[in-house]
Amino acid sequence: MYPYNYHRPTQVAEAVALFKASDDPMYLSGGMTLIPTMKQRLAAPTDLIDLSGIEEMSGLNATAEVVQVGAFTQHNVVARSAQVQATLPVLAQLAGLIGDNQVRNRGTIGGSVANSDPAADYPCAIVGLGATVVTQQRSISGDEFFKDLFETALEPGEIITRIDFPVPTRAAYRKFPNPASRYAVVGVMVADFSGSIRVGVTGAGPCAFRASGIEEVLNRELSADAVDGVEVPDAGFNSDLHASGEYRAHLVKIMAKRAVADLLHS
């Protein structure tokens, strides 16, 4: 790992000022992706701005309509939260499926979402539930947030401070994990908002996206069998040693069917 200057601000505005004053800075949240990347010298920031000292970025707040998660909240905090389990159980379940226990004790929701890894779990919840990504300067719709492979709508220096998840009538998440890394080869979130269905997909394409074709048929008929008739084109899908694009397109339908079956039994 190359040397870097380290900063630990206590306010969001201070973090942004440090970012603007640095040569080639990066924000550090839980570090579960960034630190291994730096160790491999695939990232070499001149300045690391550690967000762990900013108290307002941690913690949870749930009402009947919305679950607000501070960006620095660790995956295990979400997975084990009685509030989240009662209000938005699908989010607690999803958080408990990320990586492994040691990673869930350090990794944060803001770090995961800002990174936009094509196989990460949280982005699926952002698009599947239509969450709002809140930064120090604006609110970004979940549908507009993920742009491409490791690319988001965030501008340089912009910090995610909180994520607001609207509470659906019911929802389910299914993923086909890579057995070694536990990343999603494909993951699908199906959410029912009083009869209006949203379907989020991760793992299949360069970033998380909504499967509008599946949403369309599920809005007509909410059943696992209804998904059979949908064409999921694999154009632009990820293809690697773990799975071809064609296989991922197949998995999108299978995971969607399983999620619908779970949702109907919830």
Binding site: Y6, L28, G31, M32, I35, P36, K39, Q40, L48, N76, D100, N101, Q102, V103, N105, R106, A180, S181
Partner: peptide, 23 residues
């Protein structure tokens, strides 16, 4: 040393973490 094997697991503030992935 790539955050995968868990041989470096210690407890930090009561929870298991990989000490090769903390600066």
């Amino acid at each position: 040393d790539t955050s995968q094997c868990g041989a470096c697991t210690v407890h930090v503030n009561g929870g298991a973490v990989k000490s090769c992935t903390i600066l």
